Amino acid sequence: MSGHYDVEAVRKEFPAAERITYLDSGFQTPLARPVKAAIDRFLSEGLETAGPKSVWLDRVEQTREQLARFLGVSADEIAFTKNTSESMNIAANALPLRAGDKVLMIHGDHPNNAYAFLNLRRKGVAVEFVPMTEVVNAESLRPHVDAGTRAISMSQVTFHAGHRFDVESIGALCAEKGLYFVVDVMQAIGVVPIAARAMRATFIGSGSHKGLLVPQGLGLLYWDKSRTELEPAYLAAASLAEIPADLIARADKLDPAPNARRFELGNFNLPAIHALSASLDMIEALGVENIQNHCFDLGDHLIARLDALGVRLVGPRERQHRAPHIYVIALPAAEWLGHFEENGVRVSPERDGIRVSFGMFNTIADVDRLIEVIRRRGVKPSSRAA
């Protein structure tokens, strides 16, 4: 049992977690039975009726509303995309940035956030990388804001060591300085509570195959609808304010939709959106704060067990600065990954060691199993805590 919900009952919904010690949800979460059932329903409808498209599109809008409630925003501020990278590129290209403008980012943050803005260098936009430290907040960035700064873009939670940046204070800094603020929440959403309004973000982007439990191929984009000056770099009939009934393109009617649909391009990933509705039902039934606190408890136990072994943790240790579910152990991936695989423990290689990432289904026993696998092999002095 967890002190926050019945984790054993939740675990039964993830068959993969019963077969291996799965500690890799920061890469991709195993498929849950209710999520698979939603996809199966979609496939059965396509098989048996050739697809009730109007019903499917109604469900898209229902899921859009469900996701909006989950983020504390309105449905007309939510667009569906393909993945986080697409969301970040849509956001970067929608900002009215010109030659000489500057964007601040965090050095070592996810590359696909950085590339979306680095690509704007061809337009003369400058990107400045601020050093990553264990604590990143408004005061970390304030000295780098100058007259040319127009935007800040960053992750809420880092993928490689579980830093949790103070996006609320940075959002307040952006509001104070009149900057656009773009936030990648891929490693946070579904585990860390997200209050989009409190972030004061211009755009928030994410995929859905980690904390949101959906197979790869679906992303989301929140757009602050008060920012009506932000228009899409690409255009399709689906993104227009007036979609021509006869589907004949007219050059005099190119106004983008007044809602976030302006950033959508064509058909949806319908099975994944069905899956997202089911996964949001699962997450909301438990409560994101309960999932977060459960993962924090697992993390506390992991840190205590690593300390007892004398093995170093990479990244922040304090709850206020760390993600609840992502931890990197200072064990060289080239030497250790095969050992974990041979012992039925699924983890990820990371730039500074072995990444352990928890999901709602993990237990204290999973942590103890990991520690036993480490203890049995033994560690070299270079991996030991100072």
Rank of each mutant, 00 (worst) to 15 (best):
Y5S: 03
V10T: 03
F14E: 06
P15F: 04
T21S: 12
L23N: 04
D24M: 03
D24F: 01
S25H: 11
S25K: 02
T29L: 09
P30D: 01
I39T: 03
L47E: 15
T49D: 10
W56F: 14
V60L: 11
E61H: 11
T63M: 13
E65R: 14
L67C: 09
R69T: 10
R69K: 13
F70S: 04
V73K: 06
K82Q: 10
E86K: 13
M88H: 06
I90M: 12
R98M: 13
L104E: 05
L104S: 01
M105D: 00
N112L: 08
A114F: 09
Y115D: 10
L118W: 11
N119V: 00
R122W: 12
V125Q: 13
V125P: 15
E128T: 09
F129Q: 05
P131N: 01
T133R: 13
E134D: 15
R142C: 03
P143L: 13
T149G: 06
I152W: 11
F159M: 06
G162D: 05
R164G: 07
V167Q: 02
V167M: 09
E168C: 07
A175R: 13
L179N: 05
V185L: 11
V191R: 05
V191I: 14
V192D: 02
A196C: 09
R197D: 00
M199H: 03
A201S: 07
T202C: 07
I204V: 13
G207L: 05
L213D: 05
V214H: 08
P215D: 14
Q216D: 14
G217D: 12
G217V: 10
R227W: 10
L230M: 11
P232T: 02
A237D: 12
S239M: 07
L240Y: 06
A241E: 15
I248D: 07
R250S: 11
R250G: 02
D252F: 01
A257L: 05
E264H: 02
L270M: 13
P271V: 00
A272Q: 14
I273S: 00
I273H: 05
L276H: 04
A278K: 09
M282Y: 07
A285G: 06
A285P: 09
L286P: 12
E289A: 12
H294G: 01
C295R: 03
L298D: 06
L298E: 09
G299D: 01
D300C: 06
L302M: 13
L309F: 00
V311M: 10
V311H: 06
V314I: 15
P316Y: 00
R317N: 06
E318R: 10
Q320N: 03
P324I: 04
Y327F: 14
V328S: 05
I329A: 07
A330W: 00
W336Q: 01
F340T: 11
E341D: 14
G344E: 02
R346D: 07
S348N: 15
S348C: 10
G353I: 00
M360N: 03
T363A: 02
T363H: 04
D368Q: 09
R369Q: 04
I371F: 05
I371M: 09
E372F: 07
R376W: 08
V379N: 09
V379G: 09
K380S: 14
P381N: 06
P381D: 12
S382Y: 04
